[in-house]
Structures are given as structure tokens and as C-alpha cells.
Design a protein around this nucleic acid. Structure first.
Lengths: 247, 247
DNA sequence: AGGCGCTTGTGAAGGCGTGCACAAATCGCG
DNA sequence: CGCGATTTGTGCACGCCTTCACAAGCGCCT
């Protein structure tokens, strides 16, 4: 209902959208919908129902419909959603229609892998620069990119219009790196270092702590162990229904 | 208030606790508190106020107090929390007092890095086995572990009492690997592959998709760009207050 | 043309999580 | 011994998110 602004967005002549400020929870799920849609599209599907897409994305169908309704009315009742159109819309909302330059700081164990991670490039993100503080690593060539010293960060960031930075340094160096990224004009940071970062209010930080995920799983293991200690005693391997407990 | 079961847990003689089912949001924050506490403890702090610990963990102090109150009353009014006692309590609740064996499937780009990630070992998780389907990788030695073929998974999992598995394979192989992990008795899975997994109800799955995090940041970049297009026009680098926008 | 089945979009209700504000409790000091 | 400063633990209200249930809309078949 209400006013629709249908196919005026991606192919538009550059008008600014003014988002209907999506709920944060919805934003976090859009990439998952997008991935599912790409899979379905490659499978030859032309349209997809909310039920089908929800199953492919691992969520409730009602939740999916409400999420998509926040973007506007891009479905057809009785039919479903046009896969290509929906892909286009979500990519537009997420800002994926424009290539986004990313830099990565910290070419250690994890950073090395991130530099070559296929998932970034396939989703439209291009790592354009690698930095490290260790002189021994500067000059090293990783997946086609030469590691530069971190002192060059500011210069390169401006030159390449880098807005997103990834921190893969030890925790002790992360805050200093974040400060340098901010000073270089970066406004979004993905932090893999296990520490809290202080940044200005206009900078977004998302944190990924691999160890935390394992600790959460550990809790559930502990809980399950304390429960199975009471009733059966045996571990119920290969139980029955299928259910994923996501984030 | 209510009944307290104070220092009866970690040093106890093996009684099963029966958790007061913590809110999921609280569980997800406990590892962060734990990390902050370890930092404070190494800094020589004996006790810490909720205000101080909240700052170190990057959360609101009221939220922290409510979270900790769910574990029981381990603080002293007018003083704060005993750092060592709180560490012990949180580690107990998370089940970190017992070493947890972890296996990792998929020794590609990302898996290679995860195998050597320091953060796992330092938090009490020990990767005891690496698997891959590629015969060319079987036999390779990575950080002191030899890569084994995935067909050996079931045998090794039982032998080493592995309850947690990490999937770092391409998306296409992830579901098959998950099935094999479940069949081998694994009841917690950390999935790095960009796909939805179907598992029995008694198995917990947590998903980490690195590309999704970047896409969420991309949305905020897009939003910020469309906002700054209206008022000032210049990017307000180096604004003022410090604020982190976490997960 | 009309009706029927299917699917979207949404109003409303319920649950969960957050943050405020304050009472209860503890320590230190005079 | 009592008082004030300090800090925890929590009742309460608010807002966000999820879920149900259903009306509105669309296409197809007769």
C-alpha cells in the first residue's frame, strides 16, 4: 500500500533515495536473502514465493515478507517475487551496485586468508590495498597485491577512495590502526581483533570475534551435557527433525 | 536475592548445575565480559565496578549488571565485582573449565588461517584434527597437525571425543560435511560457508559469513552517503564524541 | 466474465531486550 | 557506633522484533 516508488531506483538518473530507515534486524538479513536469490536465479528460477525464499534463506516466511515489505512492494500476489527484480532492489539498498574499495590492515595469519577470500570479490568488494606495520612483511606479494607499510595508509586511502577498512591485527595494535583509518577518511570498519574500538560517532564498526562464536557453542554444549545427564544418559545422535539454530 | 548457590560451582565435587536458562543475548555477551576481565586482571585489578567493566567491554553498565545478575550475586555493593571470582564463574557457565576438542573441515584459504588462529587456543579450544576432501591436501602438515582425509572423520571424532566442528569448505560441500559431522556425534557446528545448513534439532549451528558483515557496512555507507548529500556536502572527518556501533 | 485458489502485505498481539531510576547493602571514617 | 559515600541488584516502562492470522490482490481456468 501507500506510495510506491517502483522501478525508479537502480536505473534512475541519480536521484537520492531517502531510505525509509529499515530496522537493523532487517538489514542484517538482506545479504542472506540476496545470496539465496542468487542461488535460485542460477538454478533457473524466474519467480519465487516467500515460502520458498524463506526456506532457502533459513528464516520464517512471515519475517521475510515483512522484511521485504520495508523495501516496497516488489512481489505479485498469487505469484511471488520476481527474482531478478528483487536482486536488483536489494543490491541497490545495500549499496552493492557501486564497487566498494576495501583496505586490509594486518597481514598475519588471519589477514593473509582474508586477503585471498573469494567471498569478498564475488560480492562486489575489492580489496585494493594491504598494510602491515612489520617491515619484514612490507613488499610481500599476496594474491596479486603488494603489502605496503602502514604509514602509507592515509595517502593510499585518499587516492583509492577507500571507505571501508578491515582490521586483522593483534588486539594491542587495533585501536591505533582504527585511529589511523579514521584519520584517513574511512567511515566503516570491520574489526577482527578481540578488543573494543573507540571511534567517532559517524564511523560504523562491526566486530567479528571467531573465539566468541566458539564460546557460545561451548555454552550450549555445557547446557546440553547437563540436561542429558538427567533423563536418558545416552547421546541422542541422529534424532529426527531438521532445525538450524542461527545467530 | 532468592536462593544463592555461591562458591559451590567451579570447585564443587561435580554436581550438575541446572542453569537458570540465561537469555540468549546475555550468553552472547559473556565472552566479551570474560575477555575484558582477563585484560583487567592482567593489569593488576583486584575488583572492578560495573561501570569500569562495562566500559572495558563496550556495553551499558545497567545491561552488564542485569546480565551478571542472571548468573547469581557475585558482586559486593559499594565495592564491585571480584575479578578472579567472576572469571571463574563465567568460565564455568560457558563450560570453558573443561578443554573442548574441536575439528576443522576444509583446509583451504580460510581454513588454513583458522587452523593457526591463536585466539582459539588462548580461549581453551584445541583443534585436534584437520580434514579435507582433496587428496592433494591430505598429509600436509599445518601448524603441527597433519591433514587427514574426510573419510576418517567419524573414526577420529569418536576417538578424540570431538563435540564441536568448524566448517570452512566451499558452500557446495558444506551440507554434506555437516551431515558427516552430525553422524560422527558432533553437536555444535561453526559454519563459515555461505549457505544454510539443515541439522537435527539437538545440534547447534552458528554461522559466520564474512561477506555479510561487509554488506551490512556497505548499507551504512550507502545510507551515510545519501544523507551527507543533503546538508553539508563535505565529509565530517574527525567529528567529535567517541561511540562504537557494535553488532 | 466470473469464480477459485494461491500468495503477498499488514494489523495486532505477544515476547524479548534495553535502559532508567531507585532501594538495598556494604565499606570506610569520624 | 552511626553516618555518608558508593555500588549492586532490580522493578518498571518503553521500544523493537517476531509471529499469527487474515484481508486484499492477482492469475488462471472454466
Amino acid at each position: 500500500m501507500s506510495q510506491q516508488r517502483h522501478g525508479s531506483t537502480p536505473g534512475g538518473t541519480g536521484d537520492v533515495p531517502a531510505f525509509p530507515d529499515l530496522p537493523e534486524a532487517t538489514i542484517a538479513r538482506l545479504p542472506e536473502y540476496l545470496r539465496a536469490l542468487h542461488n535460485l536465479g542460477e538454478g533457473g528460477a524466474d519467480t519465487i514465493s516467500s515460502e520458498g525464499l524463506a526456506a532457502a534463506a533459513g528464516v520464517n516466511s512471515a519475517k521475510l515478507r515483512k522484511d521485504l515489505s520495508h523495501l516496497g512492494s516488489y512481489g505479485t500476489r498469487g505469484v511471488g517475487y520476481d527474482v531478478a527484480l528483487l536482486i536488483e532492489q536489494i543490491e541497490y539498498v545495500l549499496g552493492l551496485d557501486q564497487r566498494r574499495a576495501v583496505c586490509l590492515v594486518g597481514v598475519g595469519n588471519l589477514g593473509h586468508a582474508l586477503a585471498g577470500y573469494d567471498g569478498f570479490a564475488s560480492r562486489g568488494f575489492k580489496i585494493v590495498a594491504l598494510f602491515d606495520a612489520d617491515p619484514a612483511k612490507v613488499g610481500e606479494r599476496i594474491h596479486g597485491l603488494v603489502v605496503r607499510h602502514i604509514d602509507e595508509l592515509s595517502e593510499v586511502a585518499v587516492e583509492e577512495s577507500i571507505a571501508i577498512g578491515v582490521i586483522a591485527t593483534p588486539a594491542g595494535a587495533a585501536q591505533a590502526v582504527a585511529d589511523e583509518l579514521v584519520a584517513a577518511g574511512v567511515t566503516s570498519i570491520l574489526n577482527f581483533a578481540p578488543c573494543v574500538l573507540s571511534v567517532p560517532a559517524n564511523v560504523d564498526v562491526r566486530k567479528v570475534d571467531l573465539a566468541i562464536e566458539l564460546q557460545i557453542l561451548s555454552f550450549h554444549e555445557h547446557r546440553k551435557a547437563s540436561l542429558t545427564a538427567l533423563p536418558g544418559g545416552r547421546s541422542a545422535t541422529g534424532a529426527g527433525t531438521q532445525e538450524a539454530v542461527g545467530s
